[in-house]
């Protein structure tokens, strides 16, 4: 069981959260004309074997989106911040 330290609710079980997605992916500027930045944004991923920044939704708690750092190889948990406070 992964335990996530929600900045609002404190330490909670993973079952209260829903996994969102890779939080390092950035949407291109809306005026972006090239195709590749959009393909990269929608489809391509770094998929690291190691530390990963990811969105989780505390859906059965405060209902905030958080950005969690988690190691995909060891499942070690790092920092957890409110998504709206993480610089985009």
């Amino acid at each position: 069981m992964i335990r996530i330290k929600c900045p609002i609710c404190g330490l909670r079980n993973e079952t209260e959260f829903t996994y969102g997605a890779d939080a390092t992916v950035k949407r291109p500027e809306m005026g972006e004309q090239e195709q590749q930045p959009w393909v990269d944004y929608v489809f391509n991923r770094d998929n690291p074997r190691g530390w990963h920044k990811e969105y989780w939704h505390h859906v059965q708690g405060c209902r905030q989106w958080v950005v969690l750092e988690r190691n995909t190889l060891t499942h070690e948990i790092g920092e957890c911040k409110l998504a709206r406070e993480v610089e985009q």
Binding site: D22, D40, F43, N44, R45, D46, N47, P48, R49, T72
Partner: peptide
């Protein structure tokens, strides 16, 4: 499951998550 990792070594990003 290691496709992304071995692609990364070749400078590629794949439409894959592990």
């Amino acid at each position: 499951g290691h496709s992304g990792h071995l692609a990364h070594m070749a400078g590629l990003r794949l439409p894959v998550e592990t």
